[in-house]
Amino acid sequence: MSKPQLNLTRIIVLDLWRHKWVLVVATLVVLNAILVVYTSHVSRKLTTQWDQLLQERDRLDIEWRNLLLEEQSLAEHSRITRVATKELNMSRPLPSEEVVVRLP
């Protein structure tokens, strides 16, 4: 029995080499599948983040509205007038007392 010695490893490698394009494509398919998973994961995270930012915006809007109310009630003209005249002893000059300063 003198069959030629076959190297199995060699055969496998040769065979793989013969179908190299299939291999490349198969790898790409797997890579692609992983990327799809990864992308959808990232997109979900971004969506969550977006939603949280929207909620944050709504919260800030509400806070802004409340601050506006506070500002309006503190800066109310009659209150300013009262504080200026009573506490700071200021008074509004009559038109005849006004001095016009012209910028050159």
Binding site: S96, E98, V99, V100, V101, R102
Partner: peptide, 14 residues
């Protein structure tokens, strides 16, 4: 609105 007063108007001195 600028009032019409007899007073001399103040000029910014240069």
């Amino acid at each position: 609105v600028e009032p019409m007063t007899a007073k001399a108007q103040v000029q910014l001195a240069g």
